[in-house]
Amino acid sequence: MIARNSRFSASDPLRARLLVLIGLWIVSIVAMSLLSPYFLQASTVPYLLQYVPVLGLLGLGQTLVVLAGGPGIDLSVGAIVSLVSVIVGALLAVGLNIWLACAAGLVAGALFGLVNGILVNYLRIPSLMATLATMFAYGGLALATTEGRPFSNFPAGFAWLGLGQTFGIPNAFLFVLLPVAVILHVMLTRTVIGRHIIACGNDDRAAHLSGLDVARIRTGLYVLSGVLSAIGAIIAMSWFMAARPDAGKGMELLAVTIAVLGGTHIFGGTGGVPGAIVAILIVTTLQIGLQLANISAAWQLGVIGVLLIGSVSSLGGLKLRWRTGS
């Protein structure tokens, strides 16, 4: 009974949010096709989907971290992408098999996420500060150990993941992002773990009193965010066929934008995967469209900034209206 109630109240504003987001996406598609005659072509779709996976994985990880409340945020995801790239590239350079190198990268990503999770949940350092510090540390390590030089001796077959296509759809989208999104969505909406995550975000004290190990759940999500960032790093490497030590620069801000724009409340408890997916599409559409229309990168920054601020303040307004209406 209680579970049904909470599900109802959690999904209602989300559904409205999803409609608003889809509307926003259509508006941005129309605006971009007006700006550039090249935008509304069939060839744009794979091009767009090519861009989506890396950012999408980071955005999904961020969504879960924010959703579990705390307030949680992971500013180090971009730095994890950079550092994992460097680790995989270095392992490859010393002659390790590409599969083993990627596996090591995933383990490293999980470890970096674990460090974040412990700092935030067991040492109780505010997430913003803890992950800002690890962002410095991870990103700095990636740059300092390589002195900014990229690794680029990847085997040709490695490009399958980042550059290959199946049925005209990029492999990274079809075989990585889509399954991950579906799994996470099912986990959030259909499993006990998902219910626990939402419960932590809604009221961690109540969750704690009803027997949930809040710190462990949240730490697990930081680890998940680290692993997703590592997968993102592998896709990015396979796309560029190089491991750049600044591969993830600036991505943390886009990831936060995606999570918040996607309707996840910044203090947790409300949100989900579908909103995040549409938010990814909106951000990518804007980026690609402005690129095709040859409009300076400055506008991309400005538009994303306005979206970020607007999405949070409008979420507040929406909630307020919803509450007074009922």
């Binding site: 203090f267 400055a298 506008w299």
Partner: peptide
């Protein structure tokens, strides 16, 4: 104003305005 009146959490508000300010700067 963003944080006080629009109730945007300061980290999100200033991340957003950082984007906006750098856009202004580039333009």
């Amino acid at each position: 104003v963003l944080t006080a009146k629009l109730k945007v959490p300061p980290i999100v508000a200033t991340l957003g305005s950082m984007y906006v300010f750098s856009a202004i700067m580039f333009l």
